[in-house]
Amino acid sequence: MSNAPLLEVENLSKSYGGVQAVSGVTFSLMPGEMLALIGPNGAGKSTCFNMVGGQIPSNEGRVRIFGRDVAGLSPRQIWRLGVGRTFQVAQVFKSMTVRENVEAVFASHQAGWGLLARAGKAHRAEAEAVLDLIGMADFADRPCADMAYGDVKRLELAMALANDPKLLLMDEPAAGMAPMERIELMALTARIAKERQIGVLFTEHDMDVVFAHADRIMVLNRGQLIAEGEPEAVRNDPQVRAVYLGEGLVYDQAAAAGKASVR
């Protein structure tokens, strides 16, 4: 495992009309690591996330991806560096088949205008390799609109992985999915992340998912990092309990503790 971090965030800050949404956030992410960003609604998770992804410019601080300062780069340019992204509500191309969705990713970074070739032929093998990886090869010809939501989420992950990224940004990957699908998707993500040494930064509200899969957790409150560390330490942090986790009645205590004790 290489020791250079994939992602380094230093003193990142953002304010909207005088309201400090994110202030002085610093963290880094290593290859193969699953890093969760949690916190109450409005704590600045999305803002933080979108600053890393290039959707929102920061006021202050620095984001370095693979050692390169990405200030001023558009989401498209950041993607080209090797950063995949998934969204809270799965964003796929619903008028296409499963395979065409992945082919579209390859069509997107083909050089030139792409007016002459026939896309379906040009990228078929590459697309099928990606679908294989995600376990969807059997559904390649299905219309996307006919897929269950859990499978759409998986397809979205496939699209994010098609570019062979080294960093994956996932915004609430488990949202809107059934409990078992959540576990499956995150287990799959974790496996691929380990295999390919991809760093994963994700936000999540489902604590079962967070405690089961995160290697490290950061807690954001009112724009500031109030805790960071391994799951067990964060879970027992009194400040985190006070502002966010509460009494622990609505997530799986046993599983969270179990995962922690295994480490």
Binding site: V243, L245, G246, E247
Partner: peptide, 14 residues
């Protein structure tokens, strides 16, 4: 009613 809410808020909701 609990979708997307912080655990602490979910407890209030309960």
């Amino acid at each position: 009613p609990s979708e997307g809410l912080a655990p602490k808020i979910i407890e209030q909701m309960a």
